[in-house]
Simulated assay, not measured.
Amino acid sequence: MNGDEQLLNGRVYGHDHDEPNPGPLPHRTYAELVGGPLDGLLLDIHGWRTGEVDDGVALPTELGRWPGGRALYDPRPGEPRAQGPGITCRLYYSGDTP
């Protein structure tokens, strides 16, 4: 694991590694990002409807194939999801876009 990857693990997407609390909060809902440039990060999906999660996400990142582009993450059809706060689902890397 390189230095950038170590900084990302266990951290919430969009929070800087040097923030006082870059990790998840117990009352929020998160999706775990699996694979690709954002592997190991948690995406805060608190308040998202199921359909919004099902649509997948395109997350801006400097770590992808195109710096300043977006990393694409999608759920796997039929994969179970938990209810309530904490990590409720996984989103899997499916590619990059400029």
Results as ranks from 00 to 15, higher is better:
L41R: 04
G36P: 11
H27P: 05
I45A: 12
H46Y: 14
T88A: 02
G95M: 13
N2E: 12
Y93V: 02
P60I: 04
P77F: 06
N9K: 09
E52K: 14
H15M: 12
L59I: 09
L38Y: 09
P98T: 04
G47I: 10
G23H: 14
G40S: 06
P24L: 11
D74S: 13
L33M: 05
P20G: 09
H46P: 08
S94C: 08
P98I: 05
D74M: 14
Y92C: 02
R81E: 09
L8K: 14
G36E: 06
V12K: 02
T88H: 00
G86S: 01
G56A: 05
V12N: 02
G69C: 11
P67R: 00
Y92L: 05
P85K: 00
V53Y: 03
G14T: 00
D74Q: 11
Y93F: 15
G3W: 13
V53N: 03
Q6K: 09
P26Q: 10
P24H: 08
L25S: 10
A71K: 10
R76I: 13
D55I: 01
P77K: 01
W66M: 04
P80Q: 00
L43R: 01
P60G: 08
R28Q: 06
L72Q: 12
V57N: 02
G68M: 06
G86C: 01
H15Q: 12
R28G: 02
P77E: 09
G56L: 05
E52W: 14
E32L: 15
G47W: 11
